[in-house]
């Protein structure tokens, strides 16, 4: 904050340059999004006009209808939703007790877990996907949403666990001890004291799990071949090759629709997500 004060006291030349740089960043980051939005509403004729306007001439929704019909977006969105919601529930349920244990008990587990969390972030997935492909094939889980849910659960678990245990560590252990002195059982203390305080952390963690499952592409590409089971990213990637070369408007419309859920979730947790990551970054 006070570095900002210092900046204010500084020369008058720097300020306009700073705004110029900030404007540059806003254009670089924001323009592609804006372009995607306007393209989705343009008719094919508008898109191919020799002197295109930036804004669409009318709010034409035809692209959305066509994209939904052609790329089978409804079915794909259904699949994505099933996978993302199930992953979120399973990840939350199994990371909750584990996060508590990691944050509260000083065992060797902590070191192992931290090591695994780091390792899971840096490994090239090609090494994991081949054996996983073989294992799931043997178990009859290839080409099934259940198999995909399993894989997503395991691979979003490390980061979710790391986030959640940070939130547990933030709850003063004295509160639990006070509860124990009042004669509450361990379970009662956990449900009545720890769980309510952990609610924001649980929200952030579960939304993280949701977004990563909703956005994932590589595992789905390898593990799902049946067109009826494709998730949204798969369907859209196929659409790029098939129709997307010509039907730019439809491609943009489909992409826009597929982004809405994760953007909404993101808007909900933006503050928590950054603060959670900030604490991790500062500690690390």
């Amino acid at each position: 904050m006070s570095s900002a004060l210092l900046a204010g006291r500084r020369s008058r030349v720097a300020r306009p340059l700073q705004y110029l740089a900030l404007a540059g960043y806003i254009v670089f980051l924001g323009f592609p999004l804006l372009f995607l939005l306007t393209t989705a509403f343009k008719t094919p004729r508008e898109l191919q006009a020799p002197d295109p306007t930036f804004l669409p001439q009318s709010l034409d929704l035809a692209n959305f209808g066509l994209a939904i019909a052609k790329a089978n977006l409804v079915q794909a969105a259904g699949n994505s939703l099933i996978v993302a919601v199930s992953t979120t529930i399973v990840v939350t349920l199994i990371s909750l007790p584990a996060a508590y244990a990691l944050a509260r008990f000083k065992t060797r587990l902590r070191g192992i877990a931290t090591g695994w969390i780091l390792l899971s972030q840096v490994f090239p997935f090609i090494l994991i996907i081949i054996p996983l492909f073989l294992v799931l094939k043997q178990a009859g889980l290839l080409n099934s949403l259940l198999g995909l849910i399993l894989v997503y659960t395991v691979w979003s678990l490390p980061f979710a666990l790391w986030m959640l245990q940070g939130y547990v560590a933030g709850i003063p252990v004295e509160l639990e001890e006070a509860g124990a002195m009042d004669g509450g059982s361990k379970l009662l203390i956990l449900v009545r004291i720890v769980l309510p305080l952990l609610a924001p952390g649980l929200v952030a963690t579960s939304l993280f799990a949701f977004i990563s499952a909703w956005n994932e592409f590589f595992f789905a590409l390898v593990l799902i071949q049946d067109p009826a089971l494709q998730t949204l990213p798969l369907t859209l990637a196929r659409f790029v090759g098939a129709e997307g070369q010509v039907q730019l408007g439809q491609l943009a419309a489909g992409s826009l629709l597929a982004t809405i859920p994760s953007l909404l979730f993101f808007a909900l947790i933006q503050r928590r997500l950054t603060s959670g990551l900030l604490s991790g970054a500062v500690k690390g």
Partner: peptide, 14 residues
Amino acid sequence: AIPPVIIAIMWRLM
């Protein structure tokens, strides 16, 4: 928040 696939599609349009 945007899936990598959609970032790629967006930039293909760009």
